[in-house]
């Protein structure tokens, strides 16, 4: 598909470095965890997980995202998608646990919306560096929310993993995880020690070129799965013994260790 010319209809400043952009293009068929390739004309195109049917939530980290932050309502970006494999939607009666760190709350929030709409209870461990960067806390109000901040400015001082270590996960049928890879890997290790990693799903990020599972730039060791096509959401069982938590590759294909 060619990029869909999409007008920015609303911009929400979530924190000094994170903004949500709403578009006049709606991806009704998108499954939570799926992404769109976002083309910032004249700059670059980057993958962004949908934080809603017509929104992306962006952290300012590089050229493309910095340029996005210069755009206003009425400006346009090109959107292609939705692409990739999203999260497994929880069934009725299933207990769910969300674990989100920083802007990693963006792909998880649409799942929380579904859980809330169905009246199921979903518990959340939501972490960030400081209280200003806690994202979408109101969208996670579908059950108990444990907040952690690195600097202790709100909730528990420390990491989501500290909270998880003290959380009994045996009651949960599904666990959804997104955040920085080091955080996700620590979560994976805690869950694996409990043999609970197979009921967890992790949303990964890698450098994408084509975004459609052809070029292989985002393929993971050792099975050659493409994060853009076979993921970006993977079951914990699929990540066992993989590069996850150890290294990723830069745009030239060289390994970069975490």
């Amino acid at each position: 598909m060619r990029p869909i010319h999409s007008k920015i209809t609303e911009i929400v400043e979530e924190s000094p470095n994170v903004r949500t952009f709403f578009f006049d293009t709606q991806f009704d068929e998108a499954i939570p965890g799926q992404f769109v390739m976002v083309w910032v004309h004249g700059t670059d195109e980057v993958p962004m997980t949908l934080s809603g049917k017509n929104s992306i939530t962006v952290q300012k980290v590089g050229d493309a995202t910095s340029r996005m932050f210069e755009l206003g309502i009425g400006d346009h970006m090109g959107l292609r998608g939705p692409f990739g494999r999203g999260f497994t939607i929880p069934g009725n009666g299933e207990n769910v646990l969300f674990i989100a760190g920083g802007v990693g709350a963006a792909p998880i929030a649409p799942l929380a919306d579904i859980v809330k709409a169905r009246g199921i209870e979903g518990r959340t461990i939501l972490g960030s560096r400081c209280c200003d960067e806690l994202l979408f806390r109101e969208r996670f109000a579908c059950g108990r929310v444990d907040i952690t901040t690195d600097d202790g400015s709100e909730g528990r001082g420390g990491f989501v993993t500290d909270q998880l270590a003290e959380t009994d996960t045996s009651d949960y049928d599904r666990i959804y995880v997104c955040g920085p890879e080091i955080m996700m890997y620590k979560v994976f290790e805690i869950l694996k020690a409990r043999n609970a990693h197979v009921k967890a799903e992790f949303s990964l990020h890698r450098y994408f070129k084509c975004g459609i599972g052809v070029c292989g730039a985002c393929s993971m060791d050792p099975d050659g799965l493409c994060v853009c096509r076979d993921g970006p959401v993977f079951n914990g069982g699929e990540l066992e013994g993989s590069e996850f938590g150890h290294y990723e590759r830069d745009s030239s294909g060289r390994k970069c260790h975490f």
Binding site: G216, S219, P222, G224, G253
Partner: peptide, 14 residues
């Protein structure tokens, strides 16, 4: 060339 050829794992998958 150029398709799933960036890593040894991807080539072996093909």
């Amino acid at each position: 060339s150029g398709i799933m050829g960036t890593t040894g794992a991807a080539l072996a998958r093909m």
